[in-house]
Simulated scan of single mutants.
Amino acid sequence: MKKLFAVLITLLTVTILSACGGDESGSADASDKDTIRFGATSGPYSDMVNKAIKPLLEEKGYEVTNKEFTDYVQPNKALANGDLDANLFQHKIFLESFAEEHGLDLSEVIIVPTAPMGIYSNTFEDIESIEKGSTMGVPNDPTNLARALIVLEEEGLVTIKDDVDPLRASLKDIKENKKDIEFVEVEAGQLPRLVDSEDLSMVPGNYALAAGMDLLNALALEDMPDDYRNRVAVKTEDLDKQFVKDIKEVVESEEFEKIIDEEFEGFGKPQWMKDKEE
């Protein structure tokens, strides 16, 4: 019996040690990733992953995959459930509201250059030539409409009531419409078409690029607040992991900015990148 008891104790000890060894190995694999699975919406931000982020991470020894999405729901759900390690497609306001609504624990890593909203026209060559009573397409969703009104105010076309938060302004909050512009509200994705049917159209950058428009042809481009610029996001529990630090490092690199300048003309740079250039 004593021999049998000794054998059982030995087997139990080996099993416990093996289990502990397996846990340590799993932790090492989790923290020392060699593959990073990105997700991005199809278009300019998927291009940014493929042309700028992926090659720089591969120089660090990572294998990088990028899954393209056609909606704004699945990239965050895929990130939260572990199908992705990082995504790039959303601004701060969307990230925070989506995470809260769906009970997800996601965090931003770094803000990236973002295609700005612009005023486009086939009727007028510049802001000064806009005539009174002109028609303009604007987004009908609250977030993009507020952005549009900020641009219009910066260009001296409207003024917003003093007691209104510019980030939440709507058409009813216009105090002065200096050119008596007639606003036509439509879904943001339809705004490129209104460049032909209306005198002017306020088109978000991603939809302008998807429609084959040149950002540099805009009469004016948005100097957007960083809250509206897109950012790389990860699960909050991964923020301190090495692969996340390496993502941040490559986005902050001179090589990344050079690719942006060459391949993504017209994209507005975040404040941290502007500060670095000063």
Rank of each mutant, 00 (worst) to 15 (best):
T13Q: 01
A115Y: 05
P166V: 15
E63H: 14
I127M: 10
V164D: 04
E185S: 12
A148D: 06
L157W: 02
E176Y: 15
S170D: 13
Y120I: 10
I93C: 00
L56Y: 04
A52C: 09
V73P: 03
D246Q: 09
F243I: 11
G133N: 06
I9Y: 00
N140W: 02
E182R: 14
T236L: 00
E128I: 02
N66D: 02
D34Q: 06
I110C: 02
I9T: 05
H91N: 15
F69P: 06
F183L: 07
K2H: 03
F98R: 03
V234T: 07
S253D: 10
K172N: 03
A52V: 08
L194Q: 09
Y72D: 06
V186N: 01
I110T: 11
E265K: 13
L171K: 03
G61V: 06
K161C: 00
T114G: 14
V234R: 00
L219A: 07
P204W: 07
E131K: 13
N81G: 08
I36E: 11
D240W: 08
I259C: 05
N217Q: 08
D47F: 05
F98D: 15
Q74L: 13
S129T: 15
L157C: 04
D23C: 12
G61P: 09
L11N: 07
V112S: 05
D165T: 07
V73T: 14
E187D: 13
D163E: 14
L219M: 15
L171A: 15
L215K: 05
A233K: 02
R37N: 13
L79S: 01
S27M: 09
E237L: 01
I130K: 10
G189C: 03
I36D: 03
I174E: 03
R193W: 08
S197P: 01
D275E: 05
K241A: 13
P113C: 02
L194E: 04
L209V: 14
L17E: 12
K54P: 05
P139W: 03
E155F: 05
K245H: 12
D23S: 11
N230M: 09
F124S: 02
D34A: 01
L171I: 15
V234S: 00
K132D: 15
Y120N: 14
L8Q: 07
I260W: 00
K274S: 08
D275S: 07
K276S: 10
E262I: 01
S253H: 04
Y228L: 12
N66Y: 05
S129Y: 01
V251A: 01
L152Y: 09
K178I: 14
D162I: 01
Y72S: 12
L216Y: 02
D105S: 13
A233E: 14
I53N: 10
V64H: 04
S107E: 10
F89S: 12
T13A: 15
L219F: 03
L149I: 07
M202F: 09
